[in-house]
Design a protein around this nucleic acid. Structure first.
Length: 409
RNA sequence: GGACGGGUGGGUGAGUGGCUAAAACCAGCAGACUGUAAAUCUGCCGCUCCUUGCGGGCUACGGAGGUUCGAAUCCUCCCCCGUCCA
């Protein structure tokens, strides 16, 4: 595939946007110049473990950067760590992950790709699995690989160091993780590897090991971590502060609006295609009062949702938000649940049955605290009898965000 | 292999025989105020039952036994983690 590449400076400016760090930028520049001269695209890869198949916006930051390389005509390699997933990345204070079966990995990988291709162009993406080469390594190969790295260097890594200092356990197999994934970089003969900043250590090990194997040593490009909805910790599923990319538009919109104001600028930078100049302009409009922060945030939410659900859905989500929360009216589209006629049920039991709360105690609490409404009217008796014994319908509200229309038939 | 220290609710972490469903803090939830932001204030924050009461039952302090009227707290064995020594 012969491509005409854009001038080096132009490519560099585009690729640099939003990055946390490029090691080293001059090498990237050289590589770009080289590829421009020879017409050969750079091999740029991103490796992921198919452990959590539900992607959220945090994952898209680095995917978007991979897409940028793709936009510039380079080869995007999406590497699925089906083999390394069995070890588990020790990044962060992780507990041991349960090993995945082949079937789980395959299923995860598939859903992973479906989501990834909302951002990447499937036709231009090379998808690889690291079991291709890691599965073939012999014990001798592994020993040889390990001989290329020093323990002291391994322990420089921040989370190993802090775990050591704080007296937390480190298993030996965790030390193997960066080395095995380094073998990915060797096998792929990559020119550039992308990752989140927390991956920096791993990516640098990859670069060094490549050199040990006689390769030039890839450029490492890291992207900042996207902060989650709480405004302080990184977006992650286990912390529950995430926006999944397959979530419904209205749901995404609500979550986007709940982020702290200051956070929206980092979102603008990392998960939209706005240029730094545009973002600065927007920011000063808000600072000098020309633009209400809420409106700036609504624009952000609309743009992000349009990426995943299309412009129409995004606009609808925006309207829905205004109607329900700004104008405090019932939403136009409420999830509907159908029930068969039966006994009349008590409100608290019904909330549990409909999974609006986890337990009856919780339902009682919610209701007593005034967080429950039936057809728009607050109800404070947990045992209020609900008309599930005759045909009809009513709308439930549990807490701030949960609405459900119940149809009895 | 040895010596010592440690394992408490989603997290950090108090608690050394009854007053402890277990302090405090964080996180979370609801209400008020708002822009479903932030900040602030109030309340809640194991499950369950009803006669909704500072009510009853059940479950919970690594695991299994034991002592005791009564155990997160004492004893025994086991599992796990860390530190130092080898």
């Amino acid at each position: 595939m012969s491509e005409t590449f854009k001038p080096v400076e132009e490519q560099l400016a585009y690729l640099k946007k939003g990055t946390a760090e490029i090691i080293r930028e001059d090498e990237l520049k050289t590589k770009l110049a080289e590829s421009l001269k020879t017409g050969k695209p750079l091999r740029v890869y991103l490796g992921v473990d198919p452990t959590a198949p539900d992607l959220h916006l945090g994952h898209t930051v680095v995917l978007r950067k991979l897409k940028h390389f793709q936009d510039m005509g380079h080869t995007a390699v999406f590497l699925i760590g089906d083999f390394s997933a069995m070890i588990g990345d020790p990044t962060g204070v992780s507990e041991t992950r349960p090993p995945l079966t082949r079937e789980q990995v395959d299923a995860n990988a598939k859903t992973y790709l479906d989501q990834v291709f909302k951002i990447l162009d499937p036709k231009k993406t090379e998808v690889r699995y690291n079991s291709e080469w890691l599965g073939k390594l012999t014990a001798v190969d592994v020993v040889r690989l390990c001989s290329h790295y020093r323990l002291a260097r391994m322990l420089e890594r921040e989370d190993f160091r802090t775990r050591l200092n704080e007296g937390h356990p480190i298993s030996v197999h965790e030390l193997l993780y960066p080395l095995l994934t380094a073998f990915d970089a060797v096998s792929l003969k990559s020119d550039v590897e992308l990752g989140a900043t927390e991956q920096k250590f791993n990516l640098l090990v990859h670069r060094e090991i490549q050199r040990e194997y006689g390769l030039p040593g890839q450029v490492v490009l890291t992207m900042p971590i996207l902060v989650g909805l709480d405004g302080s910790r990184k977006m992650s599923k286990s912390l529950g502060n995430y926006i999944g990319i397959t979530e419904a538009p209205t749901e995404m919109f609500g979550k986007m609006m709940s982020i702290p104001d200051e956070l929206m600028w980092s979102y603008y930078e990392l998960i939209t295609d706005r240029t730094p100049a545009e973002i600065t302009a927007l920011k000063s409009e808000v600072t000098n009062g020309k633009l209400h922060p809420m409106d700036a945030k609504m624009r952000l939410a609309t743009e992000v949702i349009a990426d995943f659900h299309g412009q129409d859905a995004a606009n609808k989500a925006a309207e829905h938000f205004q109607r329900v929360f700004r104008d405090r009216q019932a939403p136009t589209e409420i999830p509907v649940v159908k029930l068969k006629q039966g006994e009349a049920k008590q409100l608290n039991a019904l909330l549990v049955e409909l999974k609006l709360v986890d337990s009856k105690s919780e339902a009682d609490r919610l209701i007593k605290q005034g967080g429950a409404e039936v057809d728009g009217a607050r109800v404070d008796d947990p045992r209020k009898s609900m008309p599930t014994d005759k045909a009809g319908e009513f709308t439930l509200r549990a807490g701030k965000k949960k609405f459900l229309k119940v149809v009895v038939e």
